[in-house]
Design a protein around this nucleic acid. Structure first.
Length: 479
RNA sequence: GUGGCCAUAGCUCAGUUGGCAGAGCACCGGGUUGUGAUCCCGGUUGUCGCGGGUUCGAGUCCCGUUGGCCACCCCA
């Protein structure tokens, strides 16, 4: 390791090896790439916990699991989002190849591609979910990394015939919208969150569009209004009101947009005569079926209707929503909406669809902050990796000789059995080892035929158990 | 892409005007009490993120670079 450096002869470009081997080597970084995570056992358990909960909620709500490639042709993403998206992607070309690829930054294009390819033979509606890694070339900060997990659930097509009336289709869209939102809420509820800590903010693009149309404001300016509403929080109220006046809204009306929230119940729909400042008739008509469907699903108490939620994406065509921690300090936990034109854009038949995505980064922050991320044996239980038993010797040679045999027979029987790798015969230290790994039972081998079975949760112990029937004893004790 | 702060043992951190690389916890071994604790003794752990520069001498000062945290931007 004391080889003299020959960097003088190699020049500065070769003097940067992280290795101390002496000979020049390519520069190697021993740090993980920016915005990625190394998952040690406790971290991997958290990931598994979240992934399993996502899967469980999806299955419970009748979604089927799919997945696609983690990289796609670069063009798949520029079709929807334009060339500007490229700087946000990890894109690459294989050495010697001619095609450009990109690590997937989102799932919707893959979903639309997969659906379009099979549309003729898929049931209506089709309900799909997936959860997996995604990649975005953004600068990391709180709640945002370059590699993260995302859960997607999508409801594609409607549960009515193609020739159904527009009213029937509107009701069907609202049912689908509500089912997707309910699935998201069902997961959050399972995590221990509730309507006082989490708010689901919902808006409907038809409401604003029809309001603008009624004022003869051309469609070309609708996007401009969406952008302005999206930027609401980043400007002073006076500036916001002044810009809003360009769309015919008064200062008083701007205050309603400023506050955003419209709390709605089934008995108190928006557009009631009490709303004198801003005529909410269009909003009311747009969301009334959705309010009914959310009520039927039992989740209306989680919902705030919020006129300022627009989502950045141009492709949303109806309901849009975001899920926020009630304190409003974190980034959005989840977001989604209706995108009725997207499947067609990817070569499929005209197909209404609604879905959402939820990342693991903000979710984890919220769960950790509220003490809802399991730790210790609770996490081992939730992820199914808690040891059933920990086999130790009482320190005598004849007992010590039996440990490996006992462990092997327990493992052959399908039990999760561990033992100590320590040299000590100190029973107190070995029990500490057993408790540290979260084992339910400790088996203290006492001789070449007998053992003590100790329940590490209760402290109760059964003495003089037979080694010959140890598997049955363990099964009985952990039942 | 822009800006601020930061990087020393496995973890949390100290390290004075530049002068021998440190503490607690953790971990490992031994001892005591046949039971997870307490206690006692001993021990391991360092490319001071990386690469240059200044200097007799750099963890410390300077430059660059990588990574982290935070804000802006963006947010599928």
């Amino acid at each position: 390791m004391s080889t003299p450096s020959n960097s003088d002869a190699k020049g500065p470009d070769h003097a940067r090896g992280a290795s101390s081997g002496g000979a020049s080597r390519p520069r190697v970084s021993f740090q993980a790439p920016k915005g990625t995570r190394d998952l040690y056992p406790a971290d991997a358990a958290k990931r598994r916990f979240i992934m399993e909960a996502w899967r469980s909620a999806s299955v419970r709500f009748g979604f089927e699991e799919i997945d696609g490639p983690t990289f796609e042709h670069l063009g798949l993403y520029t079709v929807k989002s334009g060339e500007g998206i490229v700087s946000e992607l990890f894109s690459f070309r294989r050495s010697g190849g001619e095609d450009d690829y990109a690590l997937r930054p989102e799932f919707t294009p893959t979903l639309a591609r997969m659906y379009a390819a099979m549309a003729r033979q898929l049931p209506r509606p089709t309900k799909w979910f997936m959860a997996g890694p995604f990649f975005r070339a953004e600068r990391p900060q709180r709640g945002r990394l370059r590699e993260f997990l995302q859960w997607n659930a999508d409801f594609i097509g409607l549960d009515v015939p193609d020739d159904a009336s527009e009213d029937a289709r509107m009701e069907a869209r609202a049912r689908a919208d509500a089912e997707v939102i309910s699935c998201c809420i069902g997961f959050l509820r399972e995590m221990g969150l509730d309507a006082s800590t989490i708010r689901v903010k919902v808006n409907h693009r038809h409401a604003l569009s029809r309001w603008l149309e009624s004022r003869s404001i051309p469609a070309s300016r609708h996007t401009e209004l969406f952008t302005l509403l999206d930027a609401k929080g980043k400007m002073k109220p006076e500036e916001f009101a002044q810009k809003l006046s360009a769309f015919g809204f008064t200062t008083q009306q701007a205050e309603i947009f400023q506050k955003g929230l419209i709390r709605v119940t089934i008995d108190n729909p928006p557009g009631a005569p009490t709303d004198e400042v801003l005529d909410l008739t269009f909003f009311s008509e747009a969301v009334a079926p959705l309010v009914r469907a959310l009520t039927a699903a039992g989740v209306l108490d989680w919902i705030d209707f919020d006129l300022s939620i627009v989502r950045g994406l141009a492709y949303y065509t109806g309901m849009v929503f975001e899920v926020h921690e009630a304190g409003g300090k974190e980034r959005a936990i989840a977001g989604g909406g209706r995108y009725d034109g997207l499947v067609e854009l990817f070569g499929g038949p005209p197909t209404p669809a609604v879905g959402f995505g939820m990342g693991d980064v903000v979710l984890s922050l919220v769960l950790e902050d509220r003490g809802l991320m399991p730790t210790g044996t609770a996490m081992l239980d939730r992820t199914g990796i808690r040891p059933d038993c920990f086999v130790i010797s009482n320190g005598t040679p004849e007992a010590g000789a039996q440990v490996a045999r006992v462990v092997a027979s327990l493992r052959s029987a399908g039990l999760h059995a561990r033992h100590s790798y320590k040299a000590t015969g100190n029973i107190g230290k070995l029990l500490k080892d057993a408790a540290a790994c979260g084992a339910r039972l400790a088996i203290i081998v006492e001789s070449d035929t007998r053992a003590t079975v100790k329940n590490l949760d209760s402290g109760a112990q059964q003495t003089d158990a037979s080694l010959a029937s140890i598997v049955e004893s363990v099964r009985a004790a952990i039942r």
